[in-house]
């Protein structure tokens, strides 16, 4: 059982020992790091494909239809067919766009979505870089993501695209504050910004028990941050026809979708790490627990998408500034006055 639980760590140990015979130590560390990065990247890519499939199927069942079920068994190969189609599609670059920025924007979106994975602990000791400011890193990377949307909207030289990207900026900027404030309670309880020590601190009780209000605020603002329904005004296909990526086609268009799914799962992974105990759990191996929890959060995202209608712009901004931020401030106070002393006495 112990071998299965730590299979990745054992594998790393074996590779390190073998390489250690004929390479200096820093080089071995770098090679190990690059291998684990490739694994994380592969995990993110496979998860992304799974997400597209599961979202379409689950959404289909929730809306009383079947979803893709023709290509391969249960429609499992649909995503492969889509990928091939998108790769071979004509990539139209309208004549009036700002070419340089237009080309850069999708890459910025994908890269920022992926970078969050660097500090997500996928299991015990399974993390690319255990930064001591891990949470701050996540927040700053996700605010760089806004830049990609702005670049896409501005460079398209299209009024819908510009409107969409301005909405995206206003929305993401507004919801970033409750998001950041909701995490402060957890930092106070752990006394650390490192994702690894936050997971370790949840060995007894998950932080969702200690911070129920914080979790709700985090979840709502995270859904808004990744522009998913019911906060998908940024795309709003019925009013601004897909918003910032209206002029994109072919593979560049696909990259935006890729970025959206990767950041949706990264957000689920961060929610798991912060509030749902990360990889902690009984019997099953830690990395399995992590995958189960993150997928559960993602399924809830799909469920929300199938249930709730889109908000209006004024409701959206009002919710962030007039409800979530005051609630988050109250949460910080309650945590500071009541929960931290309680938590410390329990920990002793």
């Amino acid at each position: 059982m112990d071998v299965i639980n730590n299979i990745f760590l054992i594998g790393r140990q074996i590779i390190a020992t073998v390489l250690g015979f004929f390479l200096p130590l820093p080089v071995v560390d770098a090679v190990i790091a690059i291998i684990s990065m490739a694994l994380v990247l592969g995990f993110a890519a496979v998860t992304m494909m799974g997400q597209v499939y599961v979202e379409r199927r689950v959404l289909g069942f929730m809306q009383d239809r079947k979803g893709p079920n023709r290509v391969g068994p249960f429609g499992l190969l649909q995503i492969i067919a889509d990928a091939i189609k998108l790769l071979t599609k004509e990539d139209i670059m309208p004549s009036r766009v700002d070419r340089m920025v237009f080309r850069l924007a999708p890459i910025v979106v994908v890269a920022t979505a992926l970078l969050i994975w660097a500090v997500v602990p996928l299991g015990r000791g399974m993390i690319i870089a255990d930064l001591n400011i891990g949470i701050l890193y996540v927040i700053s990377i996700s605010s760089v993501g806004v830049l990609g949307f702005l670049m896409a909207g501005w460079s398209s030289n299209n009024k819908y695209a510009l409107l969409g990207s301005m909405r995206a900026a206003a929305q993401m900027v507004s919801y970033e504050i409750p998001l950041v404030l909701s995490i402060i309670g957890i930092i106070m309880l752990t006394g650390s910004l490192s994702t690894v020590s936050i997971v370790n601190a949840q060995a007894g009780l998950w932080f969702v028990i200690w911070q129920p209000l914080g979790f709700v605020i985090y979840f709502i603002s995270a859904v808004a941050e990744i522009n998913r329904s019911p906060f998908d005004l940024v795309e709003g296909e019925s009013e601004i026809v897909a918003g910032y990526f209206i002029e994109y086609s072919g593979m560049r268009f696909a990259l935006f979708y890729l970025g959206e799914y990767i950041s949706a799962f990264a957000m689920s992974a961060i929610a798991t790490t912060l509030f749902l105990g990360g990889w902690q759990g009984p019997i099953l191996p830690p990395y399995i627990w992590f995958v189960i929890k993150a997928w559960a959060v993602f399924i809830v995202l799909i469920w929300i998408r199938a249930t709730l209608p889109r908000l209006r712009v004024d409701q959206l901004m009002g919710l962030a500034w007039k409800v979530l931020i005051p609630l988050a401030l109250i949460n910080i106070f309650v945590t500071a006055v009541v929960l931290v002393p309680l938590f410390q006495s329990v920990a002793k």
Binding site: A30, A33, M37, L86, L87, P106, L115, A118, L131
Partner: peptide, 29 residues
Amino acid sequence: AYGYIAIFLVIAIGFGIVPLIISLRERQT
């Protein structure tokens, strides 16, 4: 750790560029 982040940044950017290069060969214009 920050060095790893830098390497990961390069890989992440590559993750966005590689499909574009593949599609450059396959797509029609």
